[in-house]
Nucleic acid binder design. Structure first.
Lengths: 249, 249
DNA sequence: TCTGGCTATCTTGCATACAAGACAGGAAAG
DNA sequence: CTTTCCTGTCTTGTATGCAAGATAGCCAGA
């Protein structure tokens, strides 16, 4: 909704702008985020840009290659798997814990699914990508728990980056169907079923990825030299490794 | 394990030190964290301290009062409830998703429970607090999913801060029992039961809190003047909506 | 043609300087 | 004695400057 746009000079709009840019698939993984460019773009000094970058780094959205620059993360295949697993765990746990679907909740989800349908009809892929991720955030919002919403928003952002890296074709209809089925189960008050469907849905999407092709072109060389694989952790201690320049955009 | 402490001047030890200080109940909620003091303590400039604070802020561990200072968060009653709910959702989801308990896993948990027993016998309350929280992190580590581990570590830190604010007496034995039961279910391969027990356990601990006394001494005045309650959000733009909690499972 | 090394330039890392707000303590007025 | 205001001090907010590493491009030598 509050989609962001241009400078505004307010406060943490840098962070928000970048995240919503990712959520709407306007920023590709690996995109270089120059402190200087962002600083001039937002009319602030590098200091504030840096703060935003640090925060995004702890959220798992960007990473820094020392003295080379900040980059939108390019999740490895292992990280991609971890993100999907985390989402399954949290979303299934969330749905299972729900007891009722309020009327506003029902309306919100219904409206959302209609938006998905409209975007599909219009073939608006960017918007579709945004909506497909947003559906899960909407569900989190139903719980009223801001902590879970924040967690799932960041995981969704990462998911979208993963899609851009590993998803050959976009099975929008399949995803939309999955969302509809989850919604139906919720409407029926069967949250256990909804949780199961959610897991299935995430499995489907994950299965639709090609987790062997794109990533880490050095992997063969790396394994033949028996070097350690790329770090999987999402938190601290992520060593630089490979160059991975930006691409396009 | 990597317990940290003292300067070291390495890198992100400031963050780690503070978090582990909270995890081991050595830092109380509301503690003021002066940029200057930390800077001299760690022999770095304020810049790096600030970066650490920003990261801790996005992790929900500290907050800043503009031009007044950084403080370890003092979760409100509402936030406390949200933290416990998030933990129930995630931990139950995690246990439910488990399929096997590896032999190392079994050993690790067994060793941990023995440590709990030892600390109880010794009456070492600080260590006990640390261990009681660490048990849940250990379980997360069994999943091998770094994302979930990080999330639960931060939530555990917040939980400990909540305990220090609202927990009148420490029912260590009860918690230990709960942990043992969870472990037994896991050993029996009954992860659904383990998830249920985990929810019950967290419910018990939450019930042991007095969420009416300590917080926000202005609440009475505030409500009598019908001012809005303290903000609860942990992130941007999340409307209150209804809580609709879960219970049991 | 290819290889190696040098340098110019661009990047972040980090410290410091200064500005501006918050607060405490004291002095003065009632 | 109480209240009000003022000022000095301490805090974070923000910008800027400089250092150090990384990279690309060029040039020379084989």
């Amino acid at each position: 909704m509050q989609d962001s746009q241009t400078s505004e000079t307010t406060q943490k709009t840098i962070e928000e702008t970048i995240v919503s840019g990712i959520l709407s698939a306007k920023i590709r993984p690996g995109t270089r985020l120059s402190e200087n460019q962002l600083a001039t773009l937002f009319s602030v000094s590098r200091t504030r840009v840096r703060e935003a970058m640090m925060r995004l780094e702890t959220r798992g959205i960007v990473h820094v290659s020392p003295r080379r620059g900040w980059f939108v993360v390019e999740p490895s295949a292992e990280e991609a798997i971890a993100v999907y697993e985390a989402r399954r765990v949290i979303e299934a746990g969330l749905l299972r814990s729900m007891r009722v679907l309020t009327d506003e909740g029902r309306k919100a989800l219904d409206a959302h699914l209609n938006e998905e349908k409209t975007a599909m009809a219009a073939g608006d892929r960017q918007r579709l990508t945004y909506l497909m991720g947003d559906f899960h955030i909407r569900i989190a919002e139903l719980s009223g728990n801001a902590i879970i919403v924040d967690i799932l928003r960041d995981l969704t952002a990462r998911t979208i980056l993963i899609s851009m890296l590993y998803q050959s074709e976009f099975h929008a209809a399949q995803s939309h169907d999955g969302h509809c089925r989850i919604f139906e189960a919720m409407q029926a008050g069967d949250f256990v079923r909804a949780a199961e469907l959610s897991v299935e849905h995430l499995d489907e999407v994950e299965m639709g990825l090609d987790l062997t092709t794109r990533p880490d072109p050095l992997s063969e060389l790396r394994s033949s030299l028996s070097l350690p694989p790329k770090a999987v952790s999402s938190g601290p201690t992520v060593k630089p490794k490979k160059p991975q320049l930006q691409r396009s955009n």
